[in-house]
Every structure is written in C-alpha cells, then in structure tokens.
C-alpha cells in the first residue's frame, strides 16, 4: 500500500517537473521570438537589434505618453513602461549594459519624486518582477527580486515561474491578433471630453498621498546607475516631468533628489519646478499625471531645449544641478 502511494507521489512529482520543463522551454522560445510591446517584447527587440542610438529615455507612462522621441532627434528612442518606476529603470539600464546596448551618448531617466520615499519601495521592487525572465541572468535584477523575501528564490525552482503574470500574453495575444505598435515608444493621449473629470478626481486622490521618510536604499541605486554610465562613458540625466499640481511630498522629494544628484555629479532637470506656471493649465492635461498629445509635443520641445542647455557646461539656471 505505502509503496503504491510513494510511487504515486514520485510519479506526480516527475509529471510536474516534466511539465514545468516543457512549459519553461516553450515559453522561453516564445519570449525570445517576441518583439511586440507586451511581455517585454520591446525590450527583447531592443536587446537583439543592431541599431545604434545616441540617446535613450527610460521611465514610466509619463515618458511613454509625454515625450515624443522623434522630436528629440533622429537617434533617440524610448524604452519606458507604464507604471514602472525607478528600480525598473535601473534594471533595464543594467541589462542594457550587460548586453552592451546602452546608447552612445546620453541616458535620460525619468524619475517620479515619490520614488525617493521608503513608503513606495515595495512597489519599486514589484516593478522589477516584470523582468523575472532575467532572474539568474542579471545580477541586479536577481538581487532586487530577492529583496522581496528570504524565500523568494524558492519560486524559481520552477522554470515556468519566470513567465508568471504579464508573460502569459505571449500565448493569448496572438489569439486576439494584438501587437501594440507605437511611434518609437510614444503613445500620445488624445484629448477627450472626460479629461477635466479625470484631472479633478485624480487631483483629489493625489492630495490624499503623504510620503515622509526618505528611502535609504534609493541613493545606492542612483550610484549604481551612475557607475554603469561612467563605465559605458555616457552622460546620465535625470528628469522629472511637469505636474498640474505639486503636493508637499514632491517638494520634499525634489530637495532629496537635488541633494543626491549634487553629491554624485548628476544632472537633474525638474520640469515640474522649472515650468510650474506654464503647465498649470487644465486644457493641457489628459488626467492629473499625463499631458494630452498636443501638450506632450510642446513638452518634448522644452525637454529638447533644456538638454541643449545642459551641453553648455558654463550655463547655470534654476532647477538644474551640474
């Protein structure tokens, strides 16, 4: 009797690991082939392409929807992801460095000022989990994911776990014939009749947010990014996009960013502070965080102007630290 049960358990275990191997292999194959926006296909395509860029922008949806890389120059591209914040940007940069795919001249990283507070760190680490495919292949991603808990690495016993979550779209999106295509990572938000409503309600929700304690690990990641750029001999620039309303935590976050960037000799352009009045105008906004397509193009031109000024080392102006 016991022998039969033990045999049954062994068979089930073998079945599970066998299936896991097959599923893992199949998904790896699909992942490597994928060049669509979903399931990390854009990043995958970028790692595999031979095209050389001068400037690369990484950030969240505020970059996807607000910066048009084509207006910034010919050899500029965008690898931003909606709802992905600073640790994700560092992970992508680390991965690009590993694959020798960092841009030739400038890496622009959009930063959200709530990211400097400890209250948001859990979410920043969650963002990196989007890149679990590279767990074990990239040290920075592996160590960041391991920060979720001491048992986190146990999940990776199953190779299919690397495809948990978003990567399931590798199977389902072909069924729907969906392959998001964008203009060089730019997804403009078209003006609509609900914009004002969204802005108002978003502002109400934003006003409820309170972040107070500085994240002690934040500057380590900035230093890590700086070191990567130094090794690749490229310029690192942090930007923070414009906001309709600047809550208290953003002002505090701006001071923290200023201090960290000054200490490490990194340029930081805070458009929210520099152009506070210019963007305090309801018709420019799709919601409380994102500009609509017209305003996005204007904002991109402002970014271009500010980047030009940065290239003149003697120039000193408000909101930028050299």
């Amino acid at each position: 009797m016991i022998r039969s049960y033990v045999l049954h358990i062994i068979l089930i275990t073998a079945l599970i690991f066998g299936c896991d191997y097959l599923i893992g292999t199949y998904f790896s194959f699909r992942f490597e082939k994928n060049t669509c926006e979903h399931a990390g296909g854009d990043l995958n395509a970028f790692l595999k392409s031979d095209e050389v860029y001068d400037t690369l922008i990484i950030g969240s949806s505020r970059v996807n929807t607000m910066i048009n890389p084509n207006l910034l120059g010919n050899k500029v591209t965008n690898l931003s992801k909606p709802a992905k914040h600073f640790y994700y940007s560092v992970s992508v940069a680390d991965l690009l460095y590993q694959y020798r795919r960092l841009p030739k001249k400038t890496l622009i990283v959009n930063i959200e000022l709530e990211d400097v507070f400890i209250e948001t760190e859990e979410r920043l680490i969650e963002d990196v989990c989007y890149l679990k495919y590279y767990y074990g292949k990239n040290d920075f991603i592996t160590s960041t994911i391991n920060e979720r808990g001491i048992f986190e690495r146990l999940k990776f016993i199953f190779s299919s776990y690397r495809f948990n979550g978003e990567n399931f779209k590798l199977l389902t999106n072909p069924l729907q014939d969906i392959c998001d295509k964008s203009e060089n990572g730019f997804f403009p938000l078209i003006k609509g009749k609900n914009d004002k409503k969204r802005l108002k309600q978003g502002l109400l929700e934003m006003k409820k947010l309170h972040y107070t304690i500085e994240n002690p690990h934040f500057d380590q990641n900035i230093i890590h990014l700086k070191k990567l750029c130094d090794k690749a001999r490229i310029q690192l620039i942090f930007i923070h996009g414009p906001n309709y309303f600047i809550p208290e935590y953003m002002q505090k976050g701006d001071l923290i960013m200023d201090r960290i960037c000054k200490k490490n000799g990194i340029s930081f352009i805070n458009f929210s502070k520099l152009y506070a009045n210019e963007f305090h105008f309801e018709p420019l906004w799709y919601d409380h965080l994102h500009l609509n397509s017209d305003a996005a193009n204007n904002y991109t031109l402002l970014v271009k102007e500010e980047l030009k000024k940065l290239k003149k080392p003697a120039t000193k102006y408000r909101g930028i630290i050299h």
Partner: peptide, 8 residues
C-alpha cells in the same frame, strides 16, 4: 497558479 497567479 504558477503562470497566472498574482504573487504579490
């Protein structure tokens, strides 16, 4: 569960 489960 392994592929689709939210692991947060």
């Amino acid at each position: 569960i392994l592929l689709l489960g939210k692991d947060t």
